[in-house]
Design a protein around this nucleic acid. Sequence first.
DNA 1: AAGAATATGTTGTTTTTGCAACAGAAGGAG
DNA 2: CTCCTTCTGTTGCAAAAACAACATATTCTT
Lengths: 226, 226
Amino acid sequence: MEEYLDIFRKNFLFSGLSDEEISRMLVCTDAREKSYASGEYVLRRGDTVSEISILAEGRLHIQREDYWGNRSIVSDVRIGEVFGESYALPESGVLMNDVVAAENSIVISLDCHRLLSPCSSSCPFHSRAIMNLISILAGKNRMLVRKIGHLSERTTREKLISYLSDEALRQKSGSIDIPFSRQQLADYLAVDRSAMSKELGKMRDERLLETHKNHFELFSVFQEFS
Amino acid sequence: MEEYLDIFRKNFLFSGLSDEEISRMLVCTDAREKSYASGEYVLRRGDTVSEISILAEGRLHIQREDYWGNRSIVSDVRIGEVFGESYALPESGVLMNDVVAAENSIVISLDCHRLLSPCSSSCPFHSRAIMNLISILAGKNRMLVRKIGHLSERTTREKLISYLSDEALRQKSGSIDIPFSRQQLADYLAVDRSAMSKELGKMRDERLLETHKNHFELFSVFQEFS
DNA sequence: AAGAATATGTTGTTTTTGCAACAGAAGGAG
DNA sequence: CTCCTTCTGTTGCAAAAACAACATATTCTT
């Protein structure tokens, strides 16, 4: 567990805590480590959870697949990020989505009840972690609202522009790397892969952008549309 | 301010607090009341906020409108609900959406910093409110994920089915009232109003549902599709 | 109650998407 | 290196959505 200390140090949940406090927190919240092979399910739609989880290694997708195999990716979880926190409190109901390892991954789970319980006399750093949790929830909230903004666009082109310019803003550059393959990007934007490919082709013809695998170059005319 | 006590009593943010504690909380967080006429902007995209707000009267829409007037409704805020909380912490960046009064409305704003500050010696109920805030954020998170589920459906019909069956589940009945006009429902599901009207007509012809203004009757065959 | 303003339903046309099938490219395994 | 699998781009076609324009209904105002 201690080998992930550098991840925990950078983790929002533990921000402001010393190494010593992080270690005590891990014990206090009954932290458990588990590995998943790429493609394996970490959590399933319909599960009830009472743990807050941190991704220590690999990459995960929060996604959903319907009866006919149509997949839709809600979000992408990267190293150090927290997931499951919105469903960990009592009365939260069951998970709405599957969590799947996009690569071989290692997950650390913390008991939510113990994390939130005010054993404040012994663990003064709990209150810090609770504030951090509020930040994490608020941040995730804003991420979801941004994604709703992309999905609310009507056409495939508009969705692409909305997503790519948002990503460019975040990466502070018109030269961006995205965390998705083409199929995954289509699943994320809820459009057909081949239609999206077609649209990207047209945008390339119109010199709006250039693509090399997961790398996108957005040209200056691009911003006129966003 | 005291006249809204019954709303505060039912409010998630204050749940578990006595009337006395609620009153002290209102003072402690510098609560302010403001009225808005229907159609008036409560908050605007690009604003920075440091208050958590509660809707005491009326109804609000969290929405966004692009240059061409295409509106998209992110969510509907009802009496007693909290809004703005995800953008109230420092470092949250600017608001992504407008907040507009859908009816004449009254809003109470609480200073977020004071709400969260651990003046625990004098206000032991702060910690309770903080836990409540976590519940609210987690709940809103789940709401947004559900909405993403609706928007991720490909066709207008699938979006309608996804939304209506979710609403039926929530209202625990196939006979439901929705908080939107037709145009607003279209804006919420990010589809064209007339196309949606057409689709609702077809579904009526197929005896999947019946509509009377904002009231929907979902027939038993409906569930086969959801 | 009358008239204006707004909301809803309807229809036809144009554009976009979804789907299916395939070919070339890239990547991995032996 | 070669075979095999997966990924990406392309095309044609059928289905669906967006758009526009209009008719009817409903609500609001005075």
